[in-house]
Design a protein around this nucleic acid. Structure first.
Length: 265
DNA sequence: ATGTCCAAAAGTTTTGGA
Protein backbone atom coordinates (compact mmCIF):
# COMPACT_ATOMS: atom_id res chain seq x y z
CA UNK A 1 0.00 0.00 0.00
CA UNK A 2 1.35 3.38 -1.03
CA UNK A 3 -0.42 6.23 0.77
CA UNK A 4 0.15 9.92 0.12
CA UNK A 5 -1.10 13.29 1.31
CA UNK A 6 -0.76 16.64 -0.44
CA UNK A 7 -2.10 20.13 0.10
CA UNK A 8 -2.41 21.08 -3.58
CA UNK A 9 -3.57 24.70 -3.10
CA UNK A 10 -6.32 24.43 -5.76
CA UNK A 11 -6.82 21.17 -7.60
CA UNK A 12 -7.80 23.14 -10.71
CA UNK A 13 -4.60 25.20 -10.78
CA UNK A 14 -2.55 22.11 -9.93
CA UNK A 15 -4.25 19.60 -12.22
CA UNK A 16 -1.45 19.13 -14.79
CA UNK A 17 1.09 18.70 -12.01
CA UNK A 18 -1.21 16.45 -10.00
CA UNK A 19 -1.78 14.14 -12.97
CA UNK A 20 1.95 13.95 -13.73
CA UNK A 21 2.70 13.29 -10.09
CA UNK A 22 0.07 10.56 -9.80
CA UNK A 23 1.40 8.85 -12.92
CA UNK A 24 4.99 9.04 -11.70
CA UNK A 25 4.45 8.20 -8.03
CA UNK A 26 1.62 5.69 -8.41
CA UNK A 27 0.13 5.98 -4.92
CA UNK A 28 -2.76 3.66 -4.09
CA UNK A 29 -4.52 6.21 -1.90
CA UNK A 30 -4.10 9.99 -1.89
CA UNK A 31 -5.45 12.56 0.56
CA UNK A 32 -5.76 16.06 -0.88
CA UNK A 33 -6.34 19.35 0.92
CA UNK A 34 -7.20 22.87 -0.21
CA UNK A 35 -8.83 21.59 -3.37
CA UNK A 36 -10.63 24.97 -3.53
CA UNK A 37 -13.12 23.79 -6.12
CA UNK A 38 -16.88 24.22 -6.13
CA UNK A 39 -19.03 21.22 -5.31
CA UNK A 40 -19.13 18.93 -8.32
CA UNK A 41 -16.18 20.61 -9.99
CA UNK A 42 -13.53 18.12 -8.89
CA UNK A 43 -11.73 16.80 -12.00
CA UNK A 44 -12.88 13.23 -11.37
CA UNK A 45 -12.74 12.28 -15.05
CA UNK A 46 -9.08 13.25 -15.39
CA UNK A 47 -7.92 11.38 -12.29
CA UNK A 48 -10.30 8.57 -13.22
CA UNK A 49 -8.32 8.01 -16.40
CA UNK A 50 -5.36 7.16 -14.16
CA UNK A 51 -7.44 4.57 -12.31
CA UNK A 52 -8.56 6.60 -9.31
CA UNK A 53 -11.99 6.90 -7.78
CA UNK A 54 -12.65 10.18 -5.96
CA UNK A 55 -14.53 11.24 -2.86
CA UNK A 56 -14.47 15.00 -2.40
CA UNK A 57 -15.90 17.50 0.03
CA UNK A 58 -16.10 21.10 -1.13
CA UNK A 59 -17.50 24.39 -0.02
CA UNK A 60 -16.47 26.55 -2.93
CA UNK A 61 -13.76 29.15 -2.85
CA UNK A 62 -11.86 27.98 0.23
CA UNK A 63 -10.85 24.73 1.91
CA UNK A 64 -11.91 21.47 0.27
CA UNK A 65 -10.60 17.94 0.91
CA UNK A 66 -10.64 14.74 -1.09
CA UNK A 67 -9.58 11.10 -1.08
CA UNK A 68 -8.41 9.39 -4.27
CA UNK A 69 -8.11 5.61 -4.35
CA UNK A 70 -7.33 2.89 -6.84
CA UNK A 71 -7.85 0.13 -4.24
CA UNK A 72 -11.51 0.72 -3.45
CA UNK A 73 -13.40 3.60 -1.89
CA UNK A 74 -16.19 2.73 0.52
CA UNK A 75 -18.04 4.15 3.53
CA UNK A 76 -17.32 7.77 2.66
CA UNK A 77 -18.04 10.21 5.48
CA UNK A 78 -18.06 13.97 5.00
CA UNK A 79 -17.04 15.98 8.05
CA UNK A 80 -17.44 14.36 11.47
CA UNK A 81 -19.89 14.42 14.37
CA UNK A 82 -19.49 17.50 16.52
CA UNK A 83 -17.37 19.30 13.95
CA UNK A 84 -17.26 23.02 14.83
CA UNK A 85 -17.85 25.71 12.22
CA UNK A 86 -16.78 29.29 11.60
CA UNK A 87 -19.61 29.78 12.13
CA UNK A 88 -20.88 27.02 9.83
CA UNK A 89 -18.94 23.75 9.34
CA UNK A 90 -16.47 23.97 6.46
CA UNK A 91 -15.08 21.38 4.04
CA UNK A 92 -12.16 20.28 6.20
CA UNK A 93 -12.54 16.53 6.70
CA UNK A 94 -13.49 13.50 4.65
CA UNK A 95 -12.90 9.84 5.38
CA UNK A 96 -13.20 6.60 3.46
CA UNK A 97 -12.16 2.96 3.59
CA UNK A 98 -9.65 2.08 0.87
CA UNK A 99 -8.28 -1.43 0.50
CA UNK A 100 -8.77 -2.20 4.18
CA UNK A 101 -7.33 1.09 5.40
CA UNK A 102 -9.52 3.76 6.97
CA UNK A 103 -8.24 7.08 5.64
CA UNK A 104 -9.00 10.61 6.82
CA UNK A 105 -8.01 13.68 4.83
CA UNK A 106 -8.05 16.74 7.08
CA UNK A 107 -7.40 20.44 6.62
CA UNK A 108 -7.08 21.96 10.08
CA UNK A 109 -8.06 25.65 10.42
CA UNK A 110 -5.08 27.99 10.15
CA UNK A 111 -5.77 30.00 13.30
CA UNK A 112 -4.37 33.23 11.78
CA UNK A 113 -3.08 34.80 15.04
CA UNK A 114 -3.39 33.62 18.66
CA UNK A 115 -5.78 36.47 19.51
CA UNK A 116 -8.03 35.85 16.51
CA UNK A 117 -11.34 33.96 16.90
CA UNK A 118 -10.01 31.64 14.21
CA UNK A 119 -7.42 30.39 16.70
CA UNK A 120 -10.11 29.34 19.19
CA UNK A 121 -11.90 27.70 16.26
CA UNK A 122 -8.72 25.80 15.40
CA UNK A 123 -8.36 24.44 18.94
CA UNK A 124 -12.05 23.53 19.14
CA UNK A 125 -11.83 21.81 15.77
CA UNK A 126 -8.81 19.75 16.84
CA UNK A 127 -10.51 18.78 20.10
CA UNK A 128 -13.62 17.65 18.24
CA UNK A 129 -11.44 15.73 15.78
CA UNK A 130 -9.85 13.94 18.72
CA UNK A 131 -13.25 12.89 20.03
CA UNK A 132 -14.39 11.68 16.60
CA UNK A 133 -11.19 9.66 16.14
CA UNK A 134 -11.53 8.17 19.62
CA UNK A 135 -14.82 6.67 18.48
CA UNK A 136 -13.43 5.57 15.12
CA UNK A 137 -10.34 3.93 16.62
CA UNK A 138 -12.49 1.67 18.78
CA UNK A 139 -12.84 -0.78 15.87
CA UNK A 140 -9.04 -1.28 15.75
CA UNK A 141 -8.81 -1.25 11.97
CA UNK A 142 -5.70 0.31 10.46
CA UNK A 143 -6.32 4.01 10.20
CA UNK A 144 -4.45 7.02 8.84
CA UNK A 145 -5.21 10.64 9.55
CA UNK A 146 -3.44 12.62 6.85
CA UNK A 147 -3.38 16.25 5.99
CA UNK A 148 -2.41 19.82 6.64
CA UNK A 149 -2.58 20.16 10.43
CA UNK A 150 -1.29 23.75 10.43
CA UNK A 151 0.75 22.88 13.52
CA UNK A 152 4.49 22.23 13.66
CA UNK A 153 4.88 19.47 16.28
CA UNK A 154 8.31 20.59 17.58
CA UNK A 155 10.70 23.52 17.26
CA UNK A 156 12.75 21.37 14.88
CA UNK A 157 9.79 21.53 12.53
CA UNK A 158 10.22 25.23 11.75
CA UNK A 159 13.26 26.79 10.11
CA UNK A 160 13.76 29.41 12.81
CA UNK A 161 11.85 28.94 16.08
CA UNK A 162 12.81 32.43 17.25
CA UNK A 163 10.77 33.96 14.44
CA UNK A 164 7.67 32.06 15.52
CA UNK A 165 7.34 33.42 19.05
CA UNK A 166 3.74 34.57 19.51
CA UNK A 167 2.73 33.00 16.20
CA UNK A 168 0.24 30.28 15.49
CA UNK A 169 1.43 26.80 14.44
CA UNK A 170 3.84 26.47 17.39
CA UNK A 171 1.89 27.50 20.51
CA UNK A 172 1.67 25.06 23.44
CA UNK A 173 -2.12 24.64 23.11
CA UNK A 174 -1.80 23.72 19.43
CA UNK A 175 0.97 21.24 20.19
CA UNK A 176 -1.07 19.86 23.08
CA UNK A 177 -3.93 19.26 20.65
CA UNK A 178 -1.60 17.13 18.51
CA UNK A 179 -0.37 15.31 21.61
CA UNK A 180 -4.00 14.52 22.47
CA UNK A 181 -4.33 12.84 19.07
CA UNK A 182 -1.18 10.81 19.69
CA UNK A 183 -2.54 9.87 23.12
CA UNK A 184 -5.32 8.04 21.29
CA UNK A 185 -2.66 5.67 20.02
CA UNK A 186 -1.81 7.48 16.80
CA UNK A 187 1.85 7.65 15.76
CA UNK A 188 3.49 10.49 13.86
CA UNK A 189 4.94 8.90 10.72
CA UNK A 190 7.89 11.25 10.28
CA UNK A 191 8.98 11.23 6.64
CA UNK A 192 12.56 11.31 5.39
CA UNK A 193 13.52 14.62 3.78
CA UNK A 194 15.06 14.37 0.33
CA UNK A 195 17.46 17.16 1.28
CA UNK A 196 18.69 18.63 4.57
CA UNK A 197 17.95 17.47 8.12
CA UNK A 198 14.34 18.67 8.40
CA UNK A 199 11.38 16.95 6.73
CA UNK A 200 9.67 20.22 5.93
CA UNK A 201 6.48 19.97 3.89
CA UNK A 202 5.61 23.65 3.40
CA UNK A 203 7.56 26.66 2.19
CA UNK A 204 5.98 30.08 1.72
CA UNK A 205 5.87 31.20 -1.91
CA UNK A 206 7.42 34.52 -0.96
CA UNK A 207 11.02 35.63 -0.69
CA UNK A 208 12.69 32.51 -2.00
CA UNK A 209 11.77 30.51 1.07
CA UNK A 210 11.91 27.17 -0.72
CA UNK A 211 15.26 27.95 -2.28
CA UNK A 212 16.64 28.76 1.19
CA UNK A 213 14.89 25.72 2.72
CA UNK A 214 13.05 27.97 5.17
CA UNK A 215 10.13 25.62 5.64
CA UNK A 216 7.84 24.03 8.16
CA UNK A 217 6.61 20.50 8.85
CA UNK A 218 2.87 21.05 9.17
CA UNK A 219 1.58 18.24 6.94
CA UNK A 220 1.39 15.05 8.94
CA UNK A 221 0.46 11.39 8.73
CA UNK A 222 -0.89 10.04 12.01
CA UNK A 223 -1.14 6.26 11.95
CA UNK A 224 -3.01 3.90 14.22
CA UNK A 225 -0.94 1.09 15.75
CA UNK A 226 -1.80 -1.57 13.13
CA UNK A 227 -0.81 0.82 10.36
CA UNK A 228 2.27 2.19 12.13
CA UNK A 229 3.63 -1.33 12.52
CA UNK A 230 3.19 -1.87 8.81
CA UNK A 231 4.98 1.29 7.67
CA UNK A 232 8.17 0.49 5.78
CA UNK A 233 9.25 3.97 4.71
CA UNK A 234 8.05 7.51 4.20
CA UNK A 235 9.44 10.57 2.43
CA UNK A 236 8.67 14.16 1.55
CA UNK A 237 8.62 14.59 -2.21
CA UNK A 238 10.32 17.97 -2.40
CA UNK A 239 10.73 17.53 -6.16
CA UNK A 240 7.02 18.31 -6.39
CA UNK A 241 7.69 21.73 -4.80
CA UNK A 242 10.16 22.67 -7.57
CA UNK A 243 9.69 24.27 -10.94
CA UNK A 244 6.89 26.30 -12.44
CA UNK A 245 3.50 26.44 -10.82
CA UNK A 246 3.97 24.31 -7.69
CA UNK A 247 1.77 24.14 -4.62
CA UNK A 248 3.39 25.74 -1.58
CA UNK A 249 3.23 22.27 0.06
CA UNK A 250 5.06 19.08 -0.91
CA UNK A 251 3.45 15.63 -0.80
CA UNK A 252 4.29 12.99 1.80
CA UNK A 253 4.49 9.42 0.50
CA UNK A 254 4.20 6.43 2.86
CA UNK A 255 4.80 2.81 1.92
CA UNK A 256 3.24 0.21 4.19
CA UNK A 257 2.90 -3.55 4.13
CA UNK A 258 -0.56 -3.80 5.54
CA UNK A 259 -1.73 -7.33 5.02
CA UNK A 260 -0.06 -9.21 7.93
CA UNK A 261 -0.98 -6.53 10.44
CA UNK A 262 -4.60 -6.45 9.36
CA UNK A 263 -4.83 -10.20 9.87
CA UNK A 264 -3.33 -9.91 13.36
CA UNK A 265 -6.40 -7.96 14.34
C1' DA B 1 8.29 45.58 -0.83
C1' DT B 2 4.47 41.89 4.04
C1' DG B 3 8.46 39.77 -1.24
C1' DT B 4 3.50 34.94 -3.99
C1' DC B 5 -0.23 32.57 -5.31
C1' DC B 6 -5.18 31.41 -5.63
C1' DA B 7 -10.26 32.34 -6.46
C1' DA B 8 -13.87 35.36 -7.00
C1' DA B 9 -16.13 39.83 -7.45
C1' DA B 10 -16.44 42.71 -11.16
C1' DG B 11 -12.65 42.93 -14.65
C1' DT B 12 -7.90 44.27 -17.68
C1' DT B 13 -7.96 45.46 -10.82
C1' DT B 14 -8.95 44.59 -6.21
C1' DT B 15 -9.73 41.73 -2.22
C1' DG B 16 -9.39 38.08 1.37
C1' DG B 17 -7.05 34.12 2.76
C1' DA B 18 -3.00 31.47 3.37
Amino acid sequence: MRLATWNVNSVKARLPRLLDWLAGTAPDVVCLQETKCPDGAFPATEVGELGYTVASHSDGRWNGVAVLSRVGLADVTVGFPGEPGFPEPEARAISATCGGLRVWSVYVPNGRTPDDPHYAYKLAWLAALRDALDTELANRAPLAVCGDFNVAPTDDDVWDPALFVNSTHVTPPERAALAALRDLGLSDVVPTPMKGPHPFTYWDYRAGMFHQNKGMRIDLVYASAPLARAVRSAYVDREARKGKGPSDHAPIVVDADLTPTVESF
